[in-house]
Design a binder for these strands. Sequence first.
RNA 1: GGCCCGUUCGUCUAACGGUUAGGACACAUGGUUUUCAUCCAUGAAAUAGGAGUUCGAUUCUCCUACGGGCUACCA
Length: 506
Amino acid sequence: MERKVRVRFAPSPTGALHMGGVRTALYNYLFAKKHGGDFLLRIEDTDQTRFVPGAEDYIIESLKWCGIMPNEGQGIGGDYGPYKQSERKDADIYTQYAFQLVENGHAYYAFDTSEELSEMREIAKKAKMPNWQYNSITRNSLKNSVSLSEDDVKARLDAGEPFTIRIKMPRNEDVRFHDEIRGWVTVNTNNLDDKVLYKSDGMPTYHLANIVDDYMMEISHVIRGEEWLPSAPLHVLLYRYLGWEDKMPLFAHLPLLMKPDGNGKLSKRDGDRLGFPVFPLEWKDPNSGEISSGYKENGYFPEAFINMLAFLGWNPGTPQEIFSLEELVDAFTLERVSKSGAKFDPEKTKWFNQQYLRAKSNEELGALLGKKVEGDFTPTYMAGVANMMKERASFIDDMLEGDYFFGRPTVFDEKTARKKWKEETPAILTELAAKFESISDWSSENIETSFKSFLEEKELGMGAVLPNFRLAVTGKGMGPSMFEIAQLLGKEETLERIKEGISKLS
RNA sequence: GGCCCGUUCGUCUAACGGUUAGGACACAUGGUUUUCAUCCAUGAAAUAGGAGUUCGAUUCUCCUACGGGCUACCA
């Protein structure tokens, strides 16, 4: 009974794709690739009032940047399209199933308007009944094809009165299903309400659409966020009532991503508040014009971002933490996904980026850095800069701290100058420069040897000369080995900087 | 409020009845380093509480507490 693995990522295009959504997509991707299956993208836009222009493209661009593109779906193609629910509605895919449910007695027409219902809830709330539901008890006193006479219903339908179709939730029945992560989950239908399946605007709700689409697209596993766990029994019932129970996918409900501090799930606000991105790419809200920062623009490598996300709620059971996407595919199992929500840690995310940065070659880092600096430098020179700066960087931009590689210092660190620059310093540095003059092979080793013999000759300590040498040449009080810096800058440039530094600092 | 899910160092987590409860991030101390960073070493740090089951519970069961999710003609 081996079924081809087909999983889907089904976001709704209501804005930027949250990193929690990216993780859901990632786990789907990993699961599909691991089992040689398909990973599809379906756009769930059944709520037309929440449509946000650009969101669909944003989702696709984000998945692309992360390197976890679906192989089938909206914007990609495939044999099970269309992959956008509004288009599927236009193709009249859902209506027949809604009516089928009414015909076989598992759903009914309801004529109550949303205004009437919210009024009902309001009254119930005041009567200390905060949990008013449209269910097997209340449906009898509301306007629907269960409570109304057949003639009345027919008259309303013929008159074109707007209606919804609701599931007729059975009374006191245990619905049991197996979750791949949580084990058996049982819910009694008395706690479930008569959810709307088909809206008065002719659109299905998520509940109906996702069942119909998963069935038609032959989805084998539904891997989605924990927020869907309470409605999973409804979905199970729908498969049963539609006669598709033998084709029902396996469910896996993922733990949520929580905010780093305090309680609750991670939201866009937390990023603004604590200074980290929550979206893969920068997003400009077309309505408010508000801009939310992205991991990409903040200098994160997609591999690091993905690696970090993979470990939020999953672990391989080994000490290894750095995983390429291929390695993740190989190691991933739903069995090792944890049950409880994971607090997001921005610090650890930086650490992941640092690991990836350091794993890159000097040439690659040099090229990346080169895009960020003015001026024309050879790849060899840039690789040399990267070699020295990478140990103190988590991001490419951190290497910009070595600005003295790309031009002479214009400002000199005041604190170092105050502490180290003495009256006799200009004379010492002038003599040092003279000593350096005689070095024919300008290598860091030779510079260091020359420097040390200079100290010996003059009976000076490191601390009296080296910080000032650094200050004159780089303008900084700290940084990589001065001898290596001098080698990369070249003899002539180094000597000129010493002279220039002396005149500017004295 | 109701229903569902969860609970191991500050955080992410390992240990699927028997371990001095392990690792990583962050933190602290020491060493290396001209400096900063790196690196190395060391340290502090956890099984929510209570009952059971068992020769033995982090692990199984129940209760309590706490946390989270859901509770729309949203997804």
